[in-house]
Computed example of a mutant assay.
Amino acid sequence: MRELTPTDARNAVLGGGVLACGGGGWKHHGELMGSLATSLERPVLAGVDELPDDTWVATVTAIGAPAAKDWEIRPVDYVHALQELVKVAGVPIGAVMTAQNGYSTTVNGWIQSAVLGVTVLDTAGDVRAHPTGKLGGLGLGERPGYESVQVVSGGNRALHGHFLSVNRGNLNTVDDVLRDISVRTGGFIASARNPVELDWVRANGAHGSISLALDLGAAMDAARSDGPDAVVEAVRTRLHAEVVDAGRLRIGKRTRTVGGWDRGTFAVGEHTVPYLNEYMAVENAGGRVASYPDTIVIIDRSTGEGLAVKDAGRGGQDVVLLVARAGTLPVSSSSIDRAGLAECEQIMGIGFLEHLDPGLRPASASYAPATETAGTRSGSPRRRSR
Rank of each mutant, 00 (worst) to 15 (best):
L307Q: 07
L212R: 04
A234W: 09
L40W: 07
V76I: 14
L329M: 12
L276Q: 11
A290Q: 09
D176Y: 03
F352H: 12
L329G: 06
T132V: 11
R377D: 02
L307T: 09
A203D: 15
R301P: 10
S380K: 14
G359A: 13
L140R: 02
G286K: 14
W26A: 13
A370C: 10
D8W: 01
E84K: 13
V309T: 15
A246Q: 11
V127M: 07
I93D: 04
L14H: 01
T237W: 11
A368D: 14
D54H: 13
T123V: 15
Y103M: 11
G109Q: 05
G252N: 11
L82K: 06
V196A: 12
G23Y: 09
A81F: 00
G269T: 07
V18P: 01
R238G: 01
G340R: 08
W71H: 09
G139W: 05
P52A: 05
A192D: 01
V48S: 10
P381T: 06
G133W: 06
D49S: 15
P66F: 12
L360R: 02
T376G: 01
A20L: 08
M348Q: 09
G169T: 08
Y292K: 09
D126A: 13
V166N: 05
G133E: 07
E372F: 00
S380E: 15
L178K: 07
V323L: 10
D221S: 11
A241V: 15
P274Q: 01
L19F: 01
S35C: 03
Y103G: 15
A129G: 07
V235T: 10
S364P: 03
V127C: 13
G315F: 04
R250F: 10
H80K: 09
A9E: 01
G109K: 06
V18I: 15
G125T: 11
D49E: 15
G25K: 08
G306D: 06
L121M: 08
R386S: 12
R202G: 03
T255Y: 01
G136C: 07
G379Q: 09
I299Q: 08
N284E: 09
R168S: 12
G359C: 00
R128Q: 11
L216S: 05
H28A: 14
L321G: 05
A99H: 03
G23E: 08
A363I: 12
G109V: 08
N172I: 14
A339F: 04
A192Q: 06
A370H: 13
L353G: 02
R338S: 14
V115M: 00
S104I: 10
A68E: 12
V319R: 04
L85V: 05
S333M: 09
V331H: 00
H207Q: 10
L36Y: 04
D357C: 06
V151L: 08
L216F: 03
P195Y: 07
G15M: 01
D262I: 11
T265I: 14
